[in-house]
Amino acid sequence: MAPARVEENLKSIVHLVQQADAAAILIAMPEVSLAGPLSDHPLYARAAEATGALLVPHAVSAVLSDGRLLADQVHPNAEGYRELADALTKQLHDLGVLR
């Protein structure tokens, strides 16, 4: 799917969540890359800024950029999932979502 369409779909989903009087949290996903460390696709930051959703950046990209944390080229191994869970928990605490 084209990134512009993904971004518009995310904005629509966030608006539905907000209409239900719930907090919308976007977890940034990496931009597709065949070489080097991954980085977050910029559409997540744009969608969060446009909608007021909370953004959790870098967690997925960091895990998927570390070969020690991968089961294959696109999936974390058990340690990778632990690292991802720890990173998400920390960032959600920092955002005030978790206590």
Results as ranks from 00 to 15, higher is better:
Ala87Asp: 05
Val32Ile: 14
Leu26Lys: 05
Gln73Ile: 12
Leu43Phe: 03
Leu95Ala: 00
Met29Glu: 13
Leu64Ser: 08
Leu84Tyr: 05
Ile25Pro: 03
Ala20Leu: 13
Ala2Glu: 15
Ser61Asp: 01
Val32Trp: 12
Ala53Ser: 08
Ala22Ile: 05
Gln19Ala: 12
Val60Trp: 00
Val74Asp: 14
Gln19Asn: 13
Val14Glu: 03
Pro3Ala: 11
His75Glu: 09
Gln19Cys: 06
Ala23Met: 12
Ala45Asp: 10
Ala22Thr: 09
Ala24Pro: 07
Ser61Glu: 02
Val56Thr: 02
Ser12Asn: 12
Leu38Cys: 05
Ala53Arg: 04
Asp94Cys: 07
Val6Arg: 14
Met1His: 15
Leu70Trp: 10
Glu8Phe: 06
Asp66His: 09
Thr51Asp: 07
Asp40Glu: 02
Gly67Phe: 08
His75Met: 09
Ile25Phe: 05
Ala28Cys: 02
Leu88Cys: 01
His58Thr: 08
Leu34His: 11
Leu34Ser: 12
Met1Cys: 12
Ile25Asp: 01
Pro30Trp: 11
Ala4Gln: 14
Val97Thr: 03
Glu31Ala: 14
Ala28Gln: 01
His93Gly: 04
Ala47His: 02
Arg68Asn: 14
Glu79Asn: 12
Ala85Ile: 07
Val97Gly: 00
Pro57Ala: 03
Glu7His: 06
Leu92Thr: 00
Ala45Thr: 08
Ala47Tyr: 01
Ala78Gln: 15
Leu38Trp: 04
Gln91Lys: 12
Glu7Met: 07
His15Asp: 13
Ser12His: 09
